[in-house]
Design a protein around this nucleic acid. Structure first.
Lengths: 237, 237
DNA sequence: ATTTCCCTTTGACTTCGGTCAAGCCGGGTC
DNA sequence: GACCCGGCTTGACCGAAGTCAAAGGGAAAT
């Protein structure tokens, strides 16, 4: 009993399930399956028929596309508490995964069968709204990515990444520990590892940051923001 | 009475409303407002608080972002029968439009108030599913855009555009009438008008297409596809 | 008919980021 | 210790697409 409550709390970390009540989660818990992945394991591939979506319990999964030449572009790295591939279930009768999914580390997931989930969904407007909320977030994220890719240069994107991953505070200086290999970050930002390196070196030369391996010190947040700033009203209502 | 039925059919052109029954649409029809726009009119801007979403009855509306330097990138051109900005309603209590919206032509829209619509939504799982379906389409579209922007070059994107807008058939030759100004297409593909022109000229030189103003003849579909082809299983189940 | 305006095209040049190649560094293994 | 290996960095070079500038062409206005 205690275990189930803990499991529910785990699921509720996802926006998708945040508003669901215990009964609904109990129904879901009955139909979900556990999945374990080792680093490098492929969960599904681009174009494959989509039958389930996933919740990440632990580990990290990368969602990516591959060019004809083998180049890989990571669309998103999914972390514990997040769901992914939910969207596919609504592409008509038979959806196909729009990306590849591969474990970056040992990972434990829950898998939800499309058909069974749709049944739960039709009876729970809470989960339905959670679904819409989760998808809406992804939508915004993708629009921001497109904006960065088309209207901004590589330096902008990298600086944005640093600022987004910095603990937000009032100080002029802050520290970041890169938890992801630099090559992976580069792929997310759609730049080559070489360029990634060079931009970091440039920022260092400009006195804006210091780099020690995966530890980066942002020395001049104002300066960095002025490189990256876009005049968007902030989200505080 | 007849008028209402016609109006319902009009709304049902949108995936969002496709599965809604007459009663639900009647409720919606009661709360929706008509909006008329002249070419160039701004409907909303990036960052503005989002209170309504829209259905296009006639005309065309472009959704776009602007770079600090004033460069414009069109994310999508919305056509009659489509809805847009639905996603914003689920970003917590107070969403903000993630893009600018501006009429390209004289346009007539229906506007739906967020609060009132959410009430209808909570009572109609059909509309909820329609919503999920509409958003899921957008999601796929955006992922494909990102793919094109990061893993493919400008020629690929342009050829893809041509192929997607060609009447699909078995013939080796087909005709396209560009309904959108070339500059607008260029912005959608995230290339400059000059580059757009040059790529068309190149394809012409290669004997793959013929260009007469806005009328384009695809002379060699196999050749074009081989420029653009990506090995993705097709959507036929 | 002529002018104007804007969209489009063409040409010359620039530049950002990619590619290729070589070296570096830290961690694991034997 | 010596070795290897993968991830990262640095340098030299290249090329696709952007920028700047000018000219062509079609439609609307005068």
């Amino acid at each position: 009993m205690k275990d189930m409550v803990k499991q529910f709390d785990e699921l509720r970390r996802a926006h998708l399930f945040a508003q669901a009540d215990d009964a609904q989660l109990a129904t879901l818990a009955r139909v979900m399956q556990e999945v374990e992945l080792a680093p490098g394991d492929t969960l599904f591939t681009h174009g494959q028929a989509a039958e389930r979506f996933f919740f990440v319990r632990s580990g990290r999964v990368k969602l990516f596309r591959i060019s004809p030449e083998g180049q890989e572009k990571i669309i998103e790295v999914v972390e514990p508490g997040q769901t992914f591939a939910e969207a596919v279930m609504f592409m008509g009768s038979q959806g196909h995964y729009p990306v590849n999914a591969q474990a970056m580390t040992d990972s434990r997931l829950y898998a939800f069968d499309q058909k069974q989930f749709l049944k739960v969904l039709s009876e729970s407007s809470e989960i339905c709204l959670g679904m819409l909320s989760a998808m809406s977030r992804r939508l915004h994220m993708l629009i921001n990515q497109i904006d960065g890719l088309t209207l901004q240069n590589a330096t902008y994107r990298l600086v944005m990444y640093l600022l987004e991953h910095a603990p937000q505070g009032l100080a002029e200086t802050t520290e970041i520990e890169l938890t992801t290999p630099k090559g992976v970050i580069a792929s997310q930002l759609a730049i080559q590892p070489e360029t990634f390196s060079r931009i970091l070196a440039k920022l260092k030369r400009l006195g804006l940051i210091e780099v020690n391996g995966n530890h980066i010190t942002l020395r001049n947040l104002r300066g960095l923001r002025s490189l990256a700033y876009v005049p968007v009203p902030d989200d505080t209502a």
